[in-house]
Write a protein that binds this DNA or RNA. Structure first.
Lengths: 242, 242
DNA sequence: TTATTTTATTAGGCAAGGCTAATTTATATA
DNA sequence: TATATAAATTAGCCTTGCCTAATAAAATAA
């Protein structure tokens, strides 16, 4: 029994993905207009496609409740998201693309169809939990880690965390990170927050204490340092940021 | 100045690739019919597309001479072939797909567009010279190694060669190879050919001498063991065949 | 050379997935 | 509530890339 009975077109996959993301952002109601904005196309086109997706039982659509993914639609959406994020990790870690370049390429790679590809890639990458933007990667069974990233500035004093990504991808920020020897997977303990300007004193496992600005702390995405299964399941080893 | 001024559709890329391959197989004349056979579509569709490709100056087409790639068309075709073969190496070597699975997936991956992707992948893979079917991988500048593969049975007595692929991808053949500890990159010296039944005595660098059948020797693709630049440029390290 | 067969081309259509413009239906505001 | 505004939907059209059927042009055989 396969998760996906018959294959989707790229366009259908993009609609499902966008509906998933809109739903995830806690939208009350996912409307044709919001979808058209996300896809940068015309609401009339969206209405056409919604009909098709309803026929295929991938979504439900009632004017009152807006659009919702069915179980089947959700599974496919999660698979697309999984592929996208795995490819992003690949592009960043193996092909040494920078954070801001990976998304666009992954938009294409996520539509490559092969039943084993995502799982093999996952294994090859060491079962990463997060993509380079700090978003969790759905598992093969379609489960999404519910451990959510936050920004460093929201970590409580005394708590440890692990770098999973960045918000700002400017080269000045990335270079600063490099200088501080902070990369994906780096473990950081938030020692103290300075009330005056929001500066944060952090302790980097490898390199001792440093103080960073609020602006810095607002742009570094972090997650709890270890998961229920123990940290040997975290794949990221600290790496240089290009 | 980029090699490709404006992007091709997947379909256009497939036509260019097929025209390239037909041309490479020494066809006297590449006709709409031969293209339609290769693409498994209708000659009428081919004629439509040929017009489009002529307009884009990617091919020349005269009923007398048939279809020919222009310089521009050739560059694009070589890029597609390059991408295809690099992805095949990736799938085989990194994701551990088997020989016969990689082609179909590479058919999709070859259409992923990004100016740096092929070159980064090439580097990541260690600048392989051959794909898993023993076909040479065009370089970044669009040069194709003119070192052509042959089958083991055509190697002269006393000559050394290197395994670059297989013709038969049946699991029985692949398992036999595994048993003999022969994989991509394995160096083999052809010691002697037995006239009686075409059997071949080979010496495998790692494992001494063995005799293999003509059928075996007809299905193992090999290339000269070292290139002008020296063998340190060959990327393949012997690996197990799955 | 003429007849036959094969190949190429044209004409007209189809499905997918967009678009614009017009219309209907909701929602908000006066 | 009546009206203005915004959103959703419908209708009709476009492009891409394919198809079939019909016709034209070649190539081959008689």
């Amino acid at each position: 029994m396969s998760i996906i009975s018959h294959s989707q077109t790229n366009s259908e996959e993009n609609y499902l993905k966008v509906i998933y993301h809109l739903g995830n952002e806690g939208k009350t109601k996912i409307s044709p207009t919001s979808i058209s904005e996300a896809l940068n196309n015309n609401p009339a086109s969206v209405v056409d496609m919604l009909k098709k997706l309803v026929d295929k039982k991938l979504i439900q659509y009632e004017k009152s409740k807006g659009v919702r993914l069915t179980g089947k639609g959700m599974k496919i959406a999660l698979l697309i998201v999984r592929r996208h994020r795995l490819w992003e990790v690949f592009l960043l870690e193996k092909l040494e693309y920078s954070w801001d370049e990976v998304h666009e390429i992954a938009e294409q790679l996520e539509h490559v169809h092969n039943p084993e590809l995502a799982d093999r890639l996952d294994k090859f990458l060491g079962f990463p939990q997060y993509d380079p933007h700090g978003d969790p990667i759905p598992t093969a069974s379609g489960e999404m880690a519910d451990i959510h990233k936050t920004i460093l500035s929201e970590v409580a004093e005394g708590k440890a965390c692990q770098v999973v990504g960045v918000k700002d991808t400017s080269s000045s920020f990335l270079q600063y990170l490099k200088k501080l020897d902070i990369g994906i997977g780096t473990k950081i303990t938030l020692v103290e927050k300075i009330p005056f300007d929001g500066s944060v004193i952090i302790s980097i496992k490898s390199g001792g204490k440093t103080t960073v600005s609020k602006m810095f702390a607002d742009n570094l995405l972090v997650a709890p340092p270890s998961l229920p299964q123990g940290e040997e399941h975290l794949h990221y080893s600290p790496r240089k940021i290009k």
